[in-house]
């Protein structure tokens, strides 16, 4: 039990240098796949004004927010360059191409 790893789909469901979003009870999560086939999950809310990061352009291990071009690191969730702010990152597991994310424990308690 209490493993909160949730299967969300396969890596091939996400285009290379692209993203998909996953709707969860704790808000939308953006799942990214880089050119190098790495995957990252972060909250789908830009630290600037809440822009949907899953809609941005993915480059290197970063995404550029579609609303005002902040660049967010997919590894740390932090805004890069002169901007300051960060979004939550989520643990993501890739088992032979099957992806799962770890949702927060406190959801259990909330239930």
């Amino acid at each position: 039990m209490n493993s909160n790893w949730m299967t969300i789909g396969r890596i091939d469901d996400i285009p290379l240098r692209g993203a998909r979003c996953v709707k969860t009870p704790q808000g939308k999560v953006a799942v990214f796949r880089t050119a190098e086939n790495e995957v990252f999950a972060i909250e789908d809310r830009c630290p600037h004004k809440g822009g949907p990061l899953s809609q941005g352009i993915v480059h290197g291990k970063a995404v550029t927010c579609p609303l005002h071009n902040w660049v967010i690191s997919l590894e740390s969730g932090r805004a890069l360059g002169a901007d300051e702010g960060s979004v939550a990152t989520l643990p993501l597991r890739n088992t032979d191409g099957e992806l799962s994310i770890l949702l927060e424990r406190r959801l259990e308690a909330a239930e």
Partner: peptide
């Protein structure tokens, strides 16, 4: 969306 996770599931 790639997946939709409901409260119950989570």
């Amino acid at each position: 969306p790639m997946a939709t996770i409901s409260y119950n599931q989570a």
